[in-house]
Design a protein around this nucleic acid. Structure first.
Lengths: 365, 365
DNA sequence: CTACGGTATGAATCCGAAG
DNA sequence: GCTTCGGATTCATACCGTA
């Protein structure tokens, strides 16, 4: 357990589970101190009577006391209260994920928008092995919905695009995730073999969330911690977590679980990074360093030429300026990446100037 | 065009497009007279600036005036107004479908609940070929959400469970539907070749909605008719429709489209009620996606014929059921692989239906 | 005729560091 | 805060022209 002392008297307890009501506990935390909130709030399910399978076995439905609300108004009031506190403790560039079903997700989404959060995506968790609809009266409820939102419109939220793309065999990650439900060894059991929590989420889900929208060392808060899936995955991935949970029996299960979790080694936590993160190299440096000579001609894919000047600008027939500006002008395009657009000639061959940039970057590292 | 006279002075115009504001036009219709509402309202996208693809081509965005709202409050007011009218004209056991994206669907869902509708499922349309996220800043927006709700809690809504199960080759239909976007020949074009409507929905989507939640002869109302996909599929499937559309140019396109639509024959519209089992790639998808038409004849190696029905089952002289069952029955065999057994006729040639399955599989992989 | 390669396009809240 | 501008960024499918 560690704490961070911040401005004001409030401190940030890390890798700890706070016992109590999530609204009160969040109120005790300092403002602007958390990178990500992941929340799996009560679903407000309104099951009438009990449900049986065709073989007459009873379905163990979600009917715990914490999941009961007297009306939509009561649920909205609760939702507004905890989402307000969550927004207060988020950093300005922080973000939130909330998961839910059609019983509650529309109210959650509308409340998020009303409070000033900015929705980035809704993501569908498509279950490979959902519980069938035993009565044949509706579609098999085969998915849940997650909303990903930044604290503010225009926030610089974290999105590890390249890491997710790599996770997805080289194509960009879509808003529909196909993952199995939590079962088998991963599903935590009580001493008597019953499931310890009715809505335990699979670690694969949290893995993708945390890889995609946090960096190692970030602080992740889960106000409905349950048996601690968020904390377990955060620990594995080298993120810090804060859990809040009202039910002591869940806390006990979560603590035992977290003690057993091992953090992945640092090399395993490294992730495909964006090109944008690489240092910027001014084109003029190639001239300064003699890799290209003033007066030398560059050529674009259509064979058009431009002359390099001593200050690192180009001159073509009807345009002058940076490598990007001249490229855009020649193509009549809104923009152009000059590094991949222009080539120089060596031994009669066209060589992209980006080769030279890579050379400089490798010398820098 | 036909009309039904009901209690009160108001009459029900059938298979007609009403020109005007949907709230006013719905107000002119008699209460309790419609079986199903399918609505594709404005999404309130709030787009800013322009977006280019990596190849510098410009994305043709939805920037139409009809999608602009000044605030969430203004959008909510509009949503409440049209959903109220829709609920008034629904029969007591009627139901509604509304489609949307994360920009609007949470507000729509909460409003539905507030007005007394009873949500039955949210259904996710997973697009096989969505537009990518060109800047790599978010997840590919690869799905849209539909909400299915009955007018009242406890209503005896229509749900053709067995037809949908048959359409899905014997497996319960799930809440996630994988279907391609509307493109190619199905996409309606202006005289100048531009798309006639920016958000035309695929017929396959409406096919599944109408097969699942209406019966032949039902009245289906679409308050945002656009270019008339709902009307076209309703006509094919022997349902009556009422369209409401504000934009005259869309109405013109829709009228021409509807004139060309042929109603499938009645035998093809009869839907299976028997229990069935059998897994694999759904033959029903070939029908749903328009690769085979309901009423079309398939032929076996001995030249015997069977008729395709809207739910993906076959009817021959002395047999009805899946492609496998009917094949086995005709041959007096214990089993039969319908995929290699049946052919359809194109240009006078027999073509095995397995070709079509391979086509779908190649799209899925 | 098929095969193949280039091009067009789809409901999109789509950049960010440096000056 | 603002403006400027470097430079990074796409997947599935349909269609069309050419070989």
């Amino acid at each position: 357990m560690t704490t961070k002392t911040l401005e004001g008297a409030k401190t940030l307890p890390l890798n700890e589970i706070l016992h109590g009501d999530c609204i009160e506990k969040m109120a005790s935390l300092p403002a602007g101190s958390v990178d990500l909130v992941f929340a799996d709030p009560p679903y407000n399910l309104q099951l009438k009577g009990t449900l049986h399978r065709p073989d007459n076995s009873k379905v163990d439905a979600v009917d715990d006391a914490w999941d009961k609300f007297s009306s939509f108004a009561a649920y909205d009031k609760f939702t507004t209260a905890w989402l307000k506190e969550a927004r207060r403790i988020l950093k300005p560039n922080g973000a939130i994920w909330v998961i839910g079903s059609y019983h509650n997700i529309f109210r959650v989404g509308a409340t998020l928008q009303d409070l000033g959060y900015w929705i980035l995506n809704d993501v569908v968790w498509r279950k490979t092995n959902p519980m069938p609809n035993f009565r044949g009266k509706r579609f098999t409820n085969a998915h849940e919905t997650m909303i990903w939102a930044s604290r503010d419109e225009g926030a610089k939220y974290t999105f590890n695009y390249d890491a997710l793309k790599a996770l997805n065999e080289g194509v960009q990650m879509r808003s529909d995730w196909v993952l199995p439900i939590c079962s088998g060894h991963e599903r935590l059991k009580d001493a008597d073999g019953a499931k310890a929590h009715p809505t335990q989420k699979p670690q694969s889900l949290l893995h993708r969330v945390l890889i995609g929208s946090t960096n190692p060392g970030d602080v992740v808060l889960d106000p409905f911690f349950g048996t601690g899936t968020t904390g377990a995955v955060a620990k594995m991935l080298g993120r810090d977590f804060i859990g809040i949970e009202r039910d002591e029996s869940y806390i006990e299960v979560a603590k035992r679980r977290l003690d057993r979790v091992r953090r992945f080694d640092r090399a395993g936590l490294e992730v495909t990074t964006a090109k944008r993160a690489e240092p910027r190299v001014p084109f003029g440096q190639l001239v300064e360093r003699g890799m290209l000579r003033p007066g030398e001609m560059l050529v674009n894919p259509r064979g058009q030429q431009a002359k390099v000047r001593a200050d690192g600008t180009l001159v073509a027939d009807n345009a002058r300026g940076s490598i990007h500006q001249v490229g855009a002008a020649l193509d009549g395009a809104p923009s152009c990446n000059g590094w991949t657009y222009w080539s120089f000639i060596r031994d009669g061959q066209r060589v992209p100037i980006d080769i030279l940039r890579q050379q400089i970057r490798s010398e820098m590292s």
